[in-house]
Design a protein around this nucleic acid. Sequence first.
DNA 1: CCGGGTTTTTGAACGTGTTCAAAATGGAGT
DNA 2: ACTCCATTTTGAACACGTTCAAAAACCCGG
Lengths: 215, 215
Amino acid sequence: MKKSDATREAILEAALRLFRKRGFEKTTMRDVAKSADVAAGAAYYYFPSKDAIVLAYYARTQDAHAELARAGMKRARTLDGRLRAVLHAKIDSMARDRKLLSALFRSIGDPASELSIFSAKTRRVRDESIALFDEALAPEELPPDLKRVLALSFWSLSMGLVLFFIHDTSPKQRKTRLLVDRAVDLLAPMMPMAAMMAPMGTSVLEVLREVGLTP
Amino acid sequence: MKKSDATREAILEAALRLFRKRGFEKTTMRDVAKSADVAAGAAYYYFPSKDAIVLAYYARTQDAHAELARAGMKRARTLDGRLRAVLHAKIDSMARDRKLLSALFRSIGDPASELSIFSAKTRRVRDESIALFDEALAPEELPPDLKRVLALSFWSLSMGLVLFFIHDTSPKQRKTRLLVDRAVDLLAPMMPMAAMMAPMGTSVLEVLREVGLTP
DNA sequence: CCGGGTTTTTGAACGTGTTCAAAATGGAGT
DNA sequence: ACTCCATTTTGAACACGTTCAAAAACCCGG
């Protein structure tokens, strides 16, 4: 059991190192195996596919994100601050990894793929991410249904930001940071207004349920 | 010139026929070539890659969509009706093609790819699609900056709907239709309200420009 | 230590997207 | 009709993700 875990870890680390340096597409599974000092097939004993390695990375990063985000939220007194904490923490936790995140979206349009960010297999990570937005919204005086819809919306926003982040070639990805700040500037003050639309929040939730976007 | 076009067309048609029947992933380039009665390499003389075939399809479909949408808008008197026309026309124009659209999103996370729906190569299609939403909004009394932002937002919405459509296994993709209708029900009545937020529309546009999401 | 089962590791082989040098075809000018 | 060049077509070869049968390493009860 012990040795096996070490091999798995070695393969994962080697893969991430190469993905970061050369990018996901330019790195070969044979490169990864060689760099981890195992045979090509060994990687497939531990990971079902090349994309799955990125998914393993993403699951691990999600935990780092959660920790960072919660630490940031503790210090914040306002919704504005908490949203900023969660979103910036997300970018922080992936700061070095722009080059490998592209793989995360490769299967987004394939309903059959288990690696899609919408699939059952990725559910844990997805739910944990949504939970962070739930927590950011928790202290607000808002109807629960509305909160639920808002948390889902913020999760979508965060996935969009990751996509933007991947494409962001500005130095230190400053543009992504700017976008996060501006988005929060814009959205946070709207939340009290949104409270007036409580019945709307409920009806949105009904549609989402009817349509299967939320259980 | 004549013969060459015919070959290109034969390859495209063969590819689409197989993609529709068996799905994109399960169809081999060798299958496509054989079905079009050419050698494997010929397909690559006309299309730079397998994904590029889907892009060629998408460009063609965009024209069909534009035509359908404009016909539908002519009959509509209200914003509500025009939005419904554009969005339903989009789904109509791709109704048979759920199985091949998955390829459209495969490169969305790869900044280097020319086939990404964000790339310069796909600009024409993107702009034409956004133009339709501009037209839907045109008769409204709204500040131009706000209209611009709204058109972009509706385009994003439409791409999200395509994604939902791909994953929608309900009979005849009824859920997608429902989602379109509900989204319009919700959003159309908000537009007059949005007018009050004109200055906000401008500032959003400034951010989008600053960040490079719009020229 | 041994034998038998389980886990891990290996590396060759396969399928598929893609490349490419060479062959076939087409056409324009003489 | 012939030459010469550009366009089109071919099919073998390549690269890379992935599979798999067999070998190796490991574990444990006797």
